[in-house]
Simulated assay, not measured.
Amino acid sequence: MSIRRFRYALVGLLGFLIIGVGVAVAGGGVNDKILSGELITIEAGETVPHDLYVFGGNLVVDGTVEGDLVVGAGTVTINGTVDGDLVVGSGQVFLAGEVTGDVRAGVGEITVGGTVGEDLLAGAGTLTITDTGEVGEDLIFAAGDVRMDGAVVGDILGTASAYDRSGTVGGSEDVTIEAGAQPEPGQPSAPDDPVRIAGEGLRQWVSVLFFGALGLLLVPGALRASESALRRRPLATAGIGLGLLLGYLIQFIAVILLMVLLAIAFGSITLDGLAGISIWLGLLDLFVTTFALVVSASFLVDMVVGLALAQLVARGWAKSRWQEFALLAVGAFVVVAATSIPAIGGIVKLVVIVLGLGAMGVAFGEWWSRRRP
Rank of each mutant, 00 (worst) to 15 (best):
F6H: 08
L10P: 01
G12P: 06
F16H: 09
I18T: 05
A24W: 05
G29D: 15
V30K: 13
D62K: 14
L69F: 05
T75S: 10
I78E: 03
V82M: 09
V82S: 03
D83S: 12
G84V: 07
D85S: 05
L86H: 03
L86D: 06
V87C: 00
G89Y: 02
A105K: 12
A105C: 14
V107W: 05
G113D: 15
G114E: 11
G117C: 08
T126L: 11
T128D: 09
I129G: 04
T132F: 12
E134V: 14
V135L: 01
G136A: 14
L139I: 00
F141H: 03
F141R: 01
G144Q: 09
V146R: 06
V146I: 15
V146C: 15
A160N: 06
G171I: 14
G171D: 08
P185K: 05
P188D: 12
D193L: 05
E200T: 05
G212R: 01
G221K: 07
L223M: 15
E227C: 12
S228N: 06
G247H: 05
L249K: 07
I250W: 08
L258S: 12
L262D: 07
I264F: 00
F266T: 08
F266H: 08
V288N: 04
L293D: 09
L300V: 11
A314V: 07
K319N: 11
K319G: 15
F325I: 07
V335C: 12
G345C: 01
I347K: 03
V348G: 10
L350G: 10
A359I: 08
M360Y: 00
F364Y: 15
F364L: 15
S369Q: 15
S369F: 07
